[in-house]
Amino acid sequence: MAASRTALRRVLAELGAVWLAVIGLYAIASIVSPPMLQLGQVFNILQVASFLGVIALGQFVVVLSGGIDLSQAGVVTLTNIVATSVMLGEDTMILPAIAICVGLALVIGILNGAMVAVLGITPLVATLGMNALLFGSALVFTGGAPRGAGAPALDAIGNGTLGGVPVATLIWLVLAAMLWALMRQTVFGRWLYSVGGNARAAHMMGVPVERVTITAYALSTIMAAFGGLLLTAYVGNPSLGIGNQYLFTAVAAVVVGGAALSGGVGSVPATVGGAVFITVLGSFTNIVRVSTGAQFVIQGALILASVYAYRQFARRRP
């Protein structure tokens, strides 16, 4: 009995209390609005959550390293603008578009990481500056009037399903599984936790702190680019405002998932749960009959409550 309770606690610790919060919120939402229980709506939420979810995976890596990446919003927008203008609605241009976007994201991430790890600029300042630079580039590139369109074949990824499950959701879960393996099975993962826990101590133990940090920021922008590509596949059109909503929701998803902004604490499955939580919250407040103001108040209050509850839960854990 005691052993099984310990095992349960271990599973919960890895998954994160956020999943309990997700279940609780979903139960409340379903009582208030029964349509939330339809299988179609469950998949709809998982589909919408996949954009935020993939982006938050990248944010998680940076937060784990003790930093923050506020350039993800700009990467999402730039990816959407560049991908649609490279594709111009042609299926043959999908691979070049993906290659260019991921390549750009890699360069941006390395620059972010270098600013933080080599130049010693505060992550918030460095990445927020990068975000402004990226948005400005998108504006200059388009002259304010974005052209282009997603390729028709991308529709299968953006809106298609496989065995009833949205393809975007499956891609998100595969990326999450890969990241989980990277965190739990590799030296890099252990280095990342140690850098986030105490960078100086990690450095003394011979961890290549600069390289780990730069890699973390590169993973973050690459995930943001993947998120931007999924979003582009979903909507099929360029928009200069498309990334804005992820400036802080990506951080919120990671924090709601229980990761500490001070670094070194957090898990991939909990980050997945954080993205689901934020999306369920949005969906729930879209469906219930409340005013826009009340919508924001409910969202803010529940995010605060869930973070507080998580802290309490974590404190009681042996």
Binding site: S33, P35, M36, Q38, G40, Q41, N44, Q47, V48, L231, Y234, V235, N237, S239, G241, I242, Q245, G282, S283, N286, I287, R289, T292
Partner: peptide, 22 residues
């Protein structure tokens, strides 16, 4: 329902998908 959609296609699509379910 009346909902904000930010004059953006993607935001409108997400909000509408929820309303369709409801």
């Amino acid at each position: 329902a009346f909902r904000d959609a930010h004059w953006e296609e993607d935001r409108a699509k997400v909000v509408m998908a929820d309303l369709i379910a409801a």
